[in-house]
């Protein structure tokens, strides 16, 4: 196996997304549970800080990856297949989360609890999506 050393651009993107989401959302939810009840401004600040860090890290690293892979195909049929499969699985999770957040939680929860549950649902679906992508790149995308 001569040239199996480097990863395709899309796999590198998936790793960046996965690691950034894991670290930032872990920090975010740890802070949320540690702080407990607090002002709206603190909650918004925490969420904004998390989002800004994600945008900066993912944006910067993605730009570096794009420059490194300039000239070659950015994505091909295998990348598209992996993306489709991972997105389909993550979508099911997201829909389940949104049903809980939008249809069940309003009856016995309020405000920030619902907000955090929605963010949690999005975070889990994104982590699952990119985790599945990484797994399919490593283990194969057949069957």
């Amino acid at each position: 196996m001569e040239e199996n050393l480097s990863m395709p651009a899309k796999e590198q993107f998936a790793w960046v997304w996965l690691s950034t989401m894991l670290v930032t959302y872990a920090a975010y939810f740890t802070s949320v549970f540690t702080i407990g009840e607090t002002t709206a401004l603190t909650q918004i600040g925490l969420f904004a800080a998390t989002t800004v860090v994600q945008v900066l890290v993912i944006g910067t690293v993605s730009a570096v990856i794009a420059v490194r892979h300039k000239g070659g195909p950015q994505s091909d049929e295998r990348d598209q297949l992996i993306d489709q499969r991972a997105t389909r699985a993550a979508y099911q999770l997201l829909i389940c989360g949104m049903i809980v957040v939008g249809c069940l939680m309003p009856f016995n929860n309020s405000g920030w609890r619902i907000f955090h549950a929605a963010v949690f649902s999005i975070a889990v679906s994104e982590i699952v999506r990119h985790g599945l992508m990484v797994s399919m790149y490593r283990r194969g995308a057949n069957g």
């Binding site: 040239e3 199996n4 480097s6 395709p8 195909p73 295998r78 283990r139 995308a141």
Partner: peptide, 13 residues
């Protein structure tokens, strides 16, 4: 990509 060729050869795709 080169990696797709490698995946085809390895029976992973």
């Amino acid at each position: 990509t080169r990696q797709t060729i490698a995946a085809i050869e390895a029976g992973k795709y």
